[in-house]
Amino acid sequence: MDRVQLLAQAYSQAPWRRQIQIIGAFLLALVTVWVIAAIYLDVTARAATIGREIQDMQVRSGGVLRIDVQKDYEPTSIEELEQYNASLQLRLANLTSDANMAERAYDMGFRPAEPGGIVYIVVPDYVPQQPVTLAPPPGPIANNTPIITSAYKESLVDWIKDQLFQASEILKGSQP
């Protein structure tokens, strides 16, 4: 009994210990909150940055470019890249147009072949030129999978919920 009293007295006689415990607990809570807040902020900021990048890839924000600011046109969004691709394809077609190719061939000394000037020979397994195929023939229909996966959209809480749901489904015996 005396020993218990002695111990109680010893602790009660040292109030700074109690203060340190309170301050320590407070600081621990504070640091915990700060760490969680920092992680949350980091994740949110990164998600927002990636979200913005995705949006910029989809369409140009604001939709217009300023004549006095944007000196060089750089396609950024999917739509602009599609336009740019189409434009490059057209430029290539202009360079290889029938008139241009004929002129270049003529400049290089080529002349149209005459029927009498052609020698025909048998080439085994020769496959004559076939009309163009720009895409494969129709096949099985591809799955309509979302382009942006859930990893880029869900929050930490969503992820935890999802994991818990999947775990519970596994425990129930059903497939996730």
């Binding site: 004549i67 006095d68 147009s97 029938d98």
Partner: peptide
Amino acid sequence: SLRGLVYRSHLMRSYPENEL
């Protein structure tokens, strides 16, 4: 100053072979 003048791109039909 030309501040305020803005532009946006779109596509227009074009025919590389002209009259052909």
